[in-house]
Amino acid sequence: MKSITLGQFYPSDSILHRLDPRMKVILAVLYIVATFLCKNVLSFALLLLSAIVLILISKIPMKLVLGGIKAILFIMAFTALINVFFTKGETPIVEWRFIHIYAEGLWQALFMIVRITVLIVGTSMLLTYTTTPIMLTDALEQLLAPLRVLHIPVHEFAMMMTIALRFIPTLVEETNKIMSAQKARGADFTSGSLISRAKALIPILIPLFVSAFRRADELATAMECRCYHGGAGRTRMTILHYSPKDFVALAVIVVFGAGIIVLNRLGIGYTM
């Protein structure tokens, strides 16, 4: 159970959690395209609404989602300022010395903020919050399988990814244990000069590397003992199946995209 605490995955039984991960990757790509199609107030309003709906049906606490957005607040503020000050337009609002602010600039800034927010919220609702990293690599492997024709070792990359993801929580846990053990012998990681702090890491890093190599070795042996020899002819234990709800979700997002295009045509207010 602990392996799924990695990243942002938030366990729940919402419909988004139950969609096929391959479909979720496709939906996320389409959703990103949709955010870039938006051009005017109406389509951006629909976009914002869709993000709120996504949060609601994912059953993920609003607090958590807002916390995630807080992390990119700086980027958003920066983008907004650039847009406010550097967009040229026809309806000036402030003209003072070298500062020229146009109504168009304000609209542009607002649209950019909505777009970035929705991009983050949308992809995290569809992917990171509702899909375990292992499921995600599985889905990517299958979606990218056609690339094998170009001699790209898709399976091997996916396997490496899966193993890495699988062992990150293990390594984190191990790091914590080793740190505790050295702290119990009076090691101090938080005070002293930069050099002494860097030195204090040695008692953690050495045992960590030793055990990581030991683990890698054991895993390789275990895989060989079970006759692992790469992707060719390998069958899967969990076979992904598209179910009707996946196609309903696809239909919904196509209609949503069409809606955005129609609203763009209405030409109300400022158009990007």
Binding site: Q182, A184, G186, I206, P207
Partner: peptide
Amino acid sequence: VRFRVGLVMQYPEYQLFEETVRADIAFG
């Protein structure tokens, strides 16, 4: 407190790191 209450954690052999046994025992 950690010097007064010595704790040996579960599977402590994975925390050894020094070059010699002597240096490792001397860490605390």
